[in-house]
């Protein structure tokens, strides 16, 4: 039976606030699926329900066909997880902490040391293997957390923003690790669309606790990226409404969206404008534009889908 993750009418309410609203999602087979959505969309809530950290108000979460709520132990027996940024008992060393997980997950005694050494080597933490975790930086702890998902040869791996807290080198290493796990089912949430594009074959996009789309990246991009082009422009200063309006009024620009304080995603009509002309126009504003890059198709689709739900 292929590995699987399934959410059936998954609902989670915190008082009046609905974090998940009847989420239906069925993922089967060995692949990497990116789980995308804005902050508060319900990504972490879904993953917490899948891993038994919280209970659903309604609905069912299944891993490999086993209901997590009724038998967490069986459901997670072939599943490794990394939810948010866990802390490890500060007086333990990475070797001891990983040994604890090996024992819990039933890794045979004779294999434990090798598995732990290999996992720590993959996250470049071998030389820290016998130091107490209490003195580690957030990034070092996250490396050990990533190592913890590699120990027991799991069929399903659930990763909630695995690059969180890591430096650029660490992020790149995590990407390589996730790429090497394509013979399993990896379900990974991330805000880094470039990372998702690089390592995932499929994406599930949710917003306001509801699934907007689940398909291959190619299909999502083809369906929702829309016609025209998109570019991300970085400015030296903060992007205010006045600046956004000036860019929006440029000939051929169809819409602008702030991606963060200093960046604008600019969508344009390719029949009117080419990328180099857009660059010239933006530079001509003399508004402090310092970077210009083509936005990915996934980013375009993401912005299109999220915008539609606002």
């Amino acid at each position: 039976m292929p590995p699987s993750i399934e959410a059936r009418q998954l609902t989670k309410r915190y008082g009046q606030f609905t974090a998940l609203s009847g989420l239906d999602l069925s993922i089967q087979g060995t692949k990497c699926v990116g789980f995308l959505g804005p902050n508060g969309a319900g990504k972490t809530t879904t993953m917490k329900i899948l891993t038994g950290l919280i209970r659903a108000t309604k609905g069912t979460a299944l891993i490999n066909g086993v209901d997590v709520a009724s038998d967490k132990k069986a459901a997670l027996s072939s599943c490794a997880t990394l939810i948010e940024t866990p802390e490890i008992y500060p007086s333990l060393t990475p070797k001891e902490a990983l040994s604890m997980l090996c024992e819990i997950r039933g890794v045979p005694r004779q294999d434990r040391n090798k598995r732990i050494d290999d996992a720590l080597a993959r996250v470049k933490m071998s030389e820290w293997a016998d130091k107490k975790v209490g003195g580690f930086s957030k990034g070092m702890k996250q490396r050990v957390n990533v190592a913890s998902t590699l120990l027991s040869d799991p069929e399903v791996i659930i990763l909630d923003e695995p690059s969180s807290g890591l430096d650029p080198r660490g992020m790149s290493e995590v990407r390589d690790i996730v790429l090497s796990l394509r013979d399993r089912l990896v379900f990974m949430s991330s805000h880094l669309l470039a990372e998702v594009t690089e390592v995932c074959q499929e994406v599930a996009l949710i917003d306001h606790g509801k699934l907007l789309v689940y398909d291959t990246i190619e299909n999502v991009t083809a369906k929702f990226a829309g016609g025209g082009g998109a570019a991300e422009v970085g400015f030296a200063g903060n992007v205010d409404e006045q600046l956004r309006a000036r860019v929006s009024k440029l000939p051929g620009v169809t819409s602008t969206t702030k991606s963060n304080d200093r960046h604008l995603i600019v969508k344009y009509d390719t029949a009117v404008l080419t990328q180099d002309k857009l660059l010239e126009s933006v530079a001509g504003l003399k508004a402090g534009a310092i970077t210009f890059s083509q936005a990915s198709g996934l980013e375009d689709a993401y912005l299109s889908l999220i915008k539609e739900t606002l």
């Binding site: 891993t51 132990k73 997670l76 939810i83 948010e84 866990p86």
Partner: peptide, 15 residues
């Protein structure tokens, strides 16, 4: 509070 539960609980082990 210390978030160590996030390391231990999401494993095939009963609470």
């Amino acid at each position: 509070q210390n978030r160590t539960g996030y390391f231990l609980v999401p494993n095939p082990i009963r609470r």
